[in-house]
Each structure stands twice: as structure tokens, then as C-alpha cells.
Amino acid sequence: MDKLKKFELMEKIVRQLEDLKNSQQAILEKISNIEVENIEVEDKNLENTLPEIHQRTADNLSAIERLVEEFGAKTTDFGEKNNVASLREQQELNRSK
């Protein structure tokens, strides 16, 4: 795989990780809402199970946030190291010919 294609794939992965992070945040909000609403309903199964689900989801979110940060930095470093900006310019020049 050439360097520009690899970089573009890495950028796509970063975007997908960001989407995954946002999804996990939305799930946490929904779980929290259910927990609050269950205060009125007083369902013991929800009361016992939701905190565990909340914790696992929060742990997953933390892991995803680390991946976004680490892989994002790796992607940036790869782009700088391989002068991706110049590779993109050259690609555009080749297309316009």
C-alpha cells in the first residue's frame, strides 16, 4: 500500500473511532436517563443491572478515547514523516494532466 493510501485509511480509522466514541457517550447518557427514571419506577432488576452496564460502557469509552488519542497522534506523525501534503499535491497534479 502506498503511503498516501495508508494515510487516508488511517484518517478514516480515526474518524470511525471518533464516531464510536460519540456513540458510547450517547449510550452512557441513555443509561443515565434510564437510571434516573427508574427512581420513580423502582424496578429492582434495572436498579441492579444498569450500574454494571454503565460501568462497562464507561470503561469502553475510556479505552476508545485512549485509542483516538494514540492512533490520532500516530496518524499525524505518519503524515508529517511521509510528507503527505506533498504527496497529495503531486496526486492532484497527476490528475490534472
Rank of each mutant, 00 (worst) to 15 (best):
D2Y: 04
K3N: 03
L4T: 07
K5M: 02
K5E: 00
K5A: 03
K6C: 02
F7I: 00
F7T: 01
L9A: 08
M10C: 05
M10T: 01
E11V: 07
R15L: 05
R15I: 13
L17R: 08
L17A: 06
L17D: 08
L17H: 03
K21N: 13
N22V: 01
S23M: 10
Q24G: 14
A26T: 07
A26W: 05
I27N: 10
N33S: 03
I34F: 04
I34R: 01
E35D: 09
E35P: 07
E35L: 05
V36N: 03
I39W: 06
I39T: 12
I39N: 15
I39F: 06
V41L: 15
D43N: 10
D43G: 08
K44V: 15
L46I: 10
E47P: 02
T49I: 13
P51K: 08
I53V: 11
Q55I: 07
R56K: 12
D59Q: 12
D59Y: 02
D59T: 13
L61N: 05
S62F: 01
I64L: 10
I64R: 00
E65Q: 08
L67T: 14
E69K: 07
E69G: 07
E69P: 04
A73H: 10
K74L: 13
T75A: 00
D77N: 07
D77Q: 06
F78K: 03
G79F: 03
E80K: 04
K81S: 02
K81A: 01
N82T: 06
N83C: 11
V84R: 01
A85N: 07
S86N: 14
L87F: 03
Q90W: 04
Q90G: 09
L93C: 08
R95N: 15
S96K: 10
